[in-house]
């Protein structure tokens, strides 16, 4: 019963919408679908989405590794505060994650006038989108790495140091190989969220077509314009991204759990 129930829920909640996305995208034929995807605003949205992800994912990967390293290998004051901070984006609404940047850098915000004086734009521009995305995707890599690195302990690093390795060599030759699969997994989740984020970027974007609309925002704008084929065509790209993420995630999970099982044999 439970299995049938969850299978039905899967079909109803996940497969059905997926089918609908592709059905509506192709409602007026493949030609119209391709046309919707190749119009300048759509291409700009794809490019912007890729740009935002390309900036925020590596930054958060670097941050995640640094935070996980600090938390799992060292004892220091404020460790629990740092852990809580990492989890913060999980617990607050993405809209708030966007709003804080508006409050900080918006025209009426704390630093707004100063930015205006220097002719710099954060809100309603790419920097704002990057900041909002960074904040929302902040925990993904760190959360993935911390449990693994805590389980592995710091002995291997200590051993490398006593054998004469420098800090950097130790990181590159001992720490990184031990966490690479979990790191990839975290980066993948981080990337999926970065490309799919709506709430936070919606607040800071200003919805300027061709300039500050990322793909999810582009979908909303088109849908509000009753351009259902356009909206669903754009959504199909996001859906495709989701499917690719899912496949990669499954492959990585298999690698990660294999690695953990190998580790447990010690």
């Amino acid at each position: 019963m439970m299995i049938v129930g969850s299978a039905l829920a899967m079909a109803g909640l996940i497969l059905m919408p997926l089918v609908v996305v592709f059905h509506d995208a192709f409602a007026e034929g493949a030609g119209r679908y391709l046309q919707a995807l190749t119009e300048p605003d759509a291409i700009a949205a794809v490019k912007l989405t890729l740009l935002v992800a390309a900036i925020s994912v590596p930054l958060n990967a670097a941050f995640g590794v640094a935070a996980a390293w600090a938390i799992s290998k060292f004892e220091f004051r404020g460790k629990s505060v740092l852990l809580t901070l990492i989890d913060l984006p999980f617990s607050i609404s993405p809209v708030v994650s966007g709003l804080v940047w508006v409050l900080l850098f918006g025209a009426q915000g704390w630093l707004g006038p100063w930015l205006l004086e220097h002719d710099a734009k954060v809100i309603f521009a790419v920097p704002g989108l990057v900041l909002a995305t960074l904040l929302v995707t902040f925990p993904f890599v760190a959360r993935e790495l911390i449990p693994l690195m805590q389980q592995q302990g710091a002995d291997e690093e200590a051993a490398a140091l006593t054998l004469g390795a420098s800090g950097l060599t130790t990181f590159l030759r001992v720490t990184l190989p031990n966490i690479k699969w979990a790191l990839l997994y975290g980066v993948l989740l981080c990337n999926a969220r970065a490309m799919g984020e709506f709430g936070a970027v919606s607040v800071v974007s200003g919805h300027i077509r061709g300039l500050t609309n990322t793909l999810p925002l582009h979908v909303e704008v088109l849908y509000n314009d009753y351009d259902s084929v356009g909206a669903f065509a754009a959504a199909s790209i996001l859906a495709g991204l989701g499917i690719i993420t899912l496949v990669l995630k499954t492959l990585l999970e298999w690698r990660v759990s294999g690695g953990l099982a190998g580790g447990r044999k010690h």
């Binding site: 291997e156 200590a158 051993a159 140091l161 006593t162 004469g164 001992v174 031990n178 190998g262 580790g263």
Partner: peptide
Amino acid sequence: PVRQRKVGMVFQHYALFRH
């Protein structure tokens, strides 16, 4: 610093590089 002391340390759980 640790790396210049040239002491060989064997850890309780060996700490071999697992990869």
